[in-house]
């Protein structure tokens, strides 16, 4: 069992993420962030979550890049204050500790694709078995999002609507 594809994807993710943080030119940082989203969508597709990969590719690599670029054109492309101060000591000590704690906790998570893990034993089989008879929708992700968990999706739509309204209220008023 070889992990060549996974390891190269992980390396690309790490390189683009670090580049987006470290690069001085803000335009390059935005484009690197778009590359990061695209590689992340490849990772989702590789793990079998095609719907998530689709959303990540369209929103993360497409729309968010356009929004960042428009924000950049509204400001100064070369920010002179970009040279950051060194991180505080508390962050240097605390963040690696937090990482070690999370790695320690990740040991207890079920393995990827484990058929005996709690969600795939208790709730997934009923969705997978009843979705087509209930809703005539072969894509179980859509039927869960739009039918079984419809109220959640409605509130998500409210969140998006609120984001648009808030942007309009903040940005569209006349300059005093």
């Amino acid at each position: 069992m070889s992990f060549v594809f996974e390891i190269s994807l992980l390396l690309l993710l790490l390189v683009t993420a670090a580049g987006a943080i470290l690069v001085k030119d803000l335009m390059s940082a935005i484009l690197l962030l778009g590359c990061y989203s695209f590689f992340l969508s490849v990772v989702w597709a590789w793990m079998g979550a095609v719907d998530v990969a689709f959303v990540e590719a369209v929103v993360g690599a497409g729309l968010a890049t356009v929004l960042f670029l428009l924000t950049l054109f509204g400001t100064q492309p070369k920010d002179v204050r970009l040279r950051r101060p060194p991180p505080p000591i508390a962050a240097l000590i605390g963040l690696p500790l937090l990482g070690v704690l999370m790695l320690y906790a990740a040991k207890d998570l079920p393995a990827f694709g484990d058929p005996a893990s709690p969600p795939s034993v208790r709730i997934s089989p009923s969705y997978l078995q009843q979705s087509y008879q209930d809703t005539r929708t072969p894509n179980v992700v859509t039927s869960v999002l739009m039918d079984y968990r419809s109220l959640d999706t409605m509130v998500e739509t409210v969140v998006i609507f609120t984001a648009g309204i808030a942007c309009a209220f903040i940005l569209r008023r006349k300059t005093l």
Binding site: L67, T71, T137, M146, G164
Partner: peptide
């Protein structure tokens, strides 16, 4: 019902994307 609500989500998201970009311009 799934088709109708999906149309609702699509209209909402499309209008919000255009609205945010026009706000940023």
């Amino acid at each position: 019902g799934i088709v109708l609500t999906q149309i609702g989500v699509a209209v909402d998201v499309a209008v919000t994307a255009i609205s945010i970009v026009f706000s940023l311009s």
